[in-house]
Amino acid sequence: MTDGPSRRKFRREGEERRRQDLIEATLDCVAERGLQGATVRAIALRAGVTAGLIRHYFPGKEELLQAAYAAIVGRMTEQAKAALAMEGAGPRRRLAAFVAANLGPPVVDARVFSLWAGFIGRASSDPALATAHREGYLGFRDEVEALVGEVLRAEGRAAGKAELRRHAIAINAIIDGLWIEGCLAGDIFEPGELVEIAIATVEALLGLNLREEEKT
């Protein structure tokens, strides 16, 4: 009786791992061949499986590309959110750390940018991909909005939903613009220069010193 549930659990874990392997193979193919060159056959060859096995997990190439794009956007957000695990840090320092994490490795990366740009170029003609992009953008913006809300509440500043939304849109734009600069021409900037510019700009927007220790 105990073997049945154990086997089923193992199978679920194995299938999820294989699905992730197919997504990684798709990203490798897109990086090397572009979206057009990332055929089901090429992806299968890269993953070391048959095209028929891919169709067991994804109905077709479009669904596989959508899953790959969602994976890369989600990964970038999670990598930045990892910077929030700061023992004893207050809201201001957490927001500063989040901004900084979005403007350094592994988020700032030429390969990641190339993948992102390729998918974005296709979004206008692929409604499902456009939806994945919208969800990724809104998820990231929600994260920024929550962080800004924590900062302003800690300062005793009341901020309505509309104000927080505007701040989140602006901060997202600051990060996006500098992220593109860093990915495309990171060698022309001084170490930490983009992070410094981003944090200083966010500080000016909020009227706060994010790197100053909070009063306890």
Results as ranks from 00 to 15, higher is better:
R8L: 15
A44W: 05
D187E: 13
L138W: 03
P106F: 01
L178H: 00
A204M: 06
D126R: 14
I197F: 12
G182V: 11
A162I: 10
E145N: 04
E190I: 09
P106V: 07
A67M: 05
R11Q: 08
S6W: 14
R8A: 15
R19P: 05
D187N: 06
F119S: 02
D28L: 09
L129G: 01
G104K: 15
A97S: 03
G118D: 09
L208W: 01
I199S: 07
D142H: 08
E63T: 05
A146E: 09
F98Q: 06
G118A: 08
D21Y: 04
L53I: 07
L205V: 09
K215E: 15
L206H: 06
A83D: 15
R55N: 07
I171S: 00
S124L: 13
E203K: 04
Q79H: 13
S124V: 13
A154W: 01
E150T: 12
L194I: 10
V148H: 00
R11L: 11
A25Q: 02
F119I: 09
R211A: 09
L129Y: 02
L65M: 10
I171H: 02
R18H: 04
E193W: 11
A146Q: 06
V195H: 01
A96E: 06
R157F: 05
A185H: 10
R55Q: 11
G186L: 09
F58I: 13
E15K: 13
